[in-house]
Simulated scan of single mutants.
Amino acid sequence: MKSFAVVFPGQGSQSVGMFESFMANDIVAKTFEEANDALGYDLKKIVLTGPESELNKTEITQPAILTASVAAYRALGKALGDNLPVACAGHSLGEYSALVAANAISFYDAVRLVRLRGQAMQEAVPAGVGAMMAILGLDDDVIVNGCAAVSKEGEAVWAANFNTPGQVVISGAKEAVARAGEYFAQNGARRCVALPVSVPSHCPMMQGAADKLAAALADINIAPASMPVYANVLAAPVTEPAAIIDCLVKQLIGSVRWVETVQNMKANGIEAVIEVGPNKVLCGLNRKIDKTLITGNIASDEDIAKVLQSLEA
């Protein structure tokens, strides 16, 4: 079997009805029941029937995506047997799913932690104050320098997500993000797309949320990871509890270095990167980063059979 890593999606991959057919898998259904017990409400019902406005609340979205991702990984794990991944990573929120997969954080603690994370992020910046925008068609350094050029005291914007070569998401104060969009449009960007979010993630405006997260992490048992977890802020593996905690706190205010993460996985001998969880966002990003990597997505029992076949080919 080929050397492979598993990666987990972040916020934005949710949809009402996701995993409806996958719920017939006992492992998946049981994982959602565990989440219900940890959260004290029926997350499974919201995922399956909505309404969409409820599922899209940040403090519900984050546990929903984590639960779906962990459920899918558990189902995949049963099929894999002893053929384990050699590493894992997650995009933003997905890093928590990766840490559960690596046995660094219990699922019970993780699902409660990401609910708190969502609440803290929403509370850190009032609705309408921050914004995010995807910039397509420019080099990373042009975007980093452009953000610095249009930022003002108390009204700044930063590069938040390095998703693929030529796709960077910026984040910051609403007015600064708008200025940056105009600047990049005038300086060769192919497109500048405002994102439908209420929180400016992965920038220093999230410092208040990072402080609350640090306090919560101090009360949770973090174990050494059973496999390397590529941290967003380092694009490199971590396994020790102190490093894991440090990276999770810094992740809220720092950039998601996804391009480097996938490139470093490839450089370390990984042949396949399998996305585990709803939607196929990371599959698309990973193919744009390196077309030679085998990719796949696990969101149903049928997907598991396809991925196993591709790994054994």
Rank of each mutant, 00 (worst) to 15 (best):
Tyr41Thr: 00
Lys291Gln: 15
Val111Lys: 00
Ala79Trp: 00
Ser3Gly: 07
Thr31Phe: 02
Thr31Gly: 03
Lys44Ile: 08
Val177Ala: 02
Gln251Trp: 14
Gly50Tyr: 02
Ala131Glu: 01
Ala110Gly: 08
Ile294Met: 05
Ala104Thr: 11
Ser97Asn: 09
Gly118Trp: 01
Cys147Met: 11
Val197Leu: 11
Val47Cys: 08
Ala134Leu: 01
Ile244Gln: 07
Thr261Phe: 12
Val47Ile: 06
Glu155Pro: 04
Ser92Gly: 05
Ser201Pro: 07
Ile253Ala: 15
Asp82Thr: 12
Pro278His: 05
Ala225Phe: 12
Glu54Arg: 11
Asp301Phe: 09
Ile298Thr: 00
Val114Ser: 00
Pro200Asn: 12
Asp42Phe: 01
Asp26Tyr: 02
Ile270Asp: 07
Val233Phe: 06
Met206Arg: 13
Asn264Arg: 06
Ala214His: 12
Ile274Cys: 02
Thr292Ala: 11
Trp258Gln: 14
Val256Tyr: 09
Ala102Asp: 03
Gly90Arg: 00
Glu260Thr: 10
Thr164His: 08
Pro200Ile: 13
Met1Ala: 12
Leu93Phe: 09
Val142His: 04
Ala194Arg: 12
Arg179Lys: 09
Gly12Leu: 13
Val256Leu: 08
Thr261Gly: 11
Tyr230Gln: 14
Asp26Ile: 03
Glu312Ser: 15
Ala110Asn: 04
Ile304Thr: 06
Ala35Leu: 04
Glu260Pro: 07
Ala209Tyr: 02
Ile289His: 04
Thr295Lys: 07
Gly269Ala: 12
Ala101Gly: 10
Ala124Gly: 14
Gln186Phe: 03
Val259Thr: 12
Gln251Ser: 14
Ser97Glu: 11
Asp82Gln: 13
Asn83Met: 14
Met23Arg: 06
Leu213Trp: 04
Val142Glu: 04
Ala149Glu: 14
Ser300Asn: 12
Tyr96Lys: 01
Glu20Tyr: 06
Ala160Tyr: 02
Ile60Ser: 00
Asn145Ile: 01
Asp42Leu: 02
Pro278Leu: 10
Leu66Trp: 01
Ile135Phe: 07
Leu195Asp: 04
Val6Met: 15
Ala305Val: 07
Leu43Arg: 00
Tyr73Trp: 15
Ala35Ile: 02
Ala87His: 02
Ala215Ser: 15
Ala101His: 07
Glu20Leu: 03
Ile60Asp: 01
Asn297Lys: 07
Gly254Ile: 14
Pro237Ser: 04
Ser106Gln: 06
Tyr73Cys: 11
Val100Thr: 02
Ala148Trp: 13
Asn145Lys: 13
Tyr108Leu: 10
Tyr183Gln: 10
Leu76Glu: 06
Gln119Asn: 01
Ala89Asp: 13
Val7Ser: 09
Gly94Lys: 05
Gly284Asn: 03
Ile143Leu: 08
Ile245Met: 11
Val256Lys: 04
Ala29Trp: 04
Glu20Ala: 05
Ile222Trp: 06
Ala214Asn: 14
Tyr108Gln: 14
Val129Ile: 10
Gly208Met: 04
Val168Ser: 01
Phe19Ser: 09
Pro200Trp: 07
Leu195Gly: 05
